[in-house]
């Protein structure tokens, strides 16, 4: 329990910027005496009340459920209402607060979340009726424990955008919808009440699903353990199982699968052909020649591993398993 703790000096360096007034972003320094378990949010609100009422930020519930107060604390994605000052001061000597990334700054720590919400809306985040299975009259649907379990922790999402802020694919490519949108899409794809699974998977395959880098920065940033990167992985597997190799991303995954079945170890050149086709490979020829000059063994087929028959037997045993995903 938080017994009466000794107060510590907490230096804050808070990002300040008002685009309407121009100038450059800067960091403003404040200092407070706080108990170590005090949340950063409490510190920021005390700064507002006692030192500087011009600082602006979003906050509401202060109990990590409304999703308003996601920010960067010493460069880490955090809900500031749930981030105690003590450990940060111990590790870094101060608390640097920045607005979330990948979203334009409105003022100080408030960012414009329009692109974030738009990408979520693009997922059609509502139940699409299933004409084969209309809602039962006068009672709820039944949902088995296995069906409930399939949602995993996606219902815990509070749309705080910490994942979106942390995502390098969002940063690099506007075609990528971002982890939250995809985790929400997953939630609908596995919902037994939804009638749009195939259409959803087909659509997302051509609108950014395969741009996910699997880097898990989103899972790291998420304050509610939604694990979006793992749900995206599940979406990919569902898409491959349901719709085969229609996109470079799914062709790459399927190509990899077949590639390993052949030799047990990766045949790099063959994988390029499997993913990109002959034309794609030809287009990559220039780069290929550069690589092969330095690394000539790429032209040779690697040696098949010993025990390849065991590998192939595992393929036979598990390639058609219906219970997907893990």
């Amino acid at each position: 329990m938080f017994a009466a703790e000794k107060l510590i000096t907490v230096p804050f360096d808070v990002y300040r910027y008002d685009p309407a007034r121009g100038g450059e972003p800067r960091y403003q320094h404040y200092e407070l005496q706080l108990a170590p378990h005090t949340p950063v949010l409490t510190g920021l609100l005390r700064i507002r009340d006692e030192l500087d009422p011009t600082l602006t930020l979003r906050y509401s519930c202060r109990s990590a459920i409304c999703g308003s107060c996601a920010m960067l604390v010493n460069s880490k994605s955090r809900l500031v209402c749930r981030t105690p000052v003590g450990p940060e001061v111990a590790e870094h000597g101060r608390i640097v607060v920045d607005p979330m990334r990948n979203q334009p700054v409105v003022r100080d720590l408030v960012v414009d979340q329009t692109p974030f919400w738009d990408r979520y809306e693009q997922m059609e985040p509502h139940l699409i009726p299933d004409p084969q299975r209309p809602m039962p009259e006068g009672r709820t649907t039944l949902m088995t424990p296995a069906q409930v379990d399939r949602f995993k922790d996606t219902p815990r999402c509070i749309a705080c955008a910490a994942c979106y802020s942390a995502c390098p694919a969002v940063e690099a490519d506007p075609e990528f919808p971002g982890p939250m949108a995809l985790a929400k899409l997953y939630r609908f794809v596995v919902d037994p009440r939804d009638g749009g699974h195939q259409a959803r998977l087909r659509k997302i395959q051509t609108s950014g699903l395969w741009l996910c880098l699997r880097c898990h920065l989103c899972t790291e940033a998420c304050p509610k353990e939604v694990r979006p990167s793992e749900r995206i992985r599940d979406l990919k597997e569902l898409a491959v199982r349901a719709q085969g190799g229609t996109e470079p991303g799914s062709r790459h995954a399927i190509g990899f699968l077949k590639n390993i079945e052949e030799g047990g170890t990766l045949n790099e050149m063959k994988l390029v052909r499997q993913t990109s086709g002959l034309i794609g490979t030809a287009k990559a020829a220039g780069q290929g020649i550069r690589l092969v000059r330095k690394k000539p063994e790429m032209l040779k087929r690697p040696k098949t591993i010993e025990g390849i028959d065991e590998v192939r037997k595992l393929y036979r045993a598990l390639e058609k398993d219906e219970e997907v995903p893990l």
Partner: peptide
Amino acid sequence: PNFSCCGSGFLDEANGLL
């Protein structure tokens, strides 16, 4: 000599259990 490829994350996307 009998180690096989780890899957590199790509094989996982095609068949996680395998």
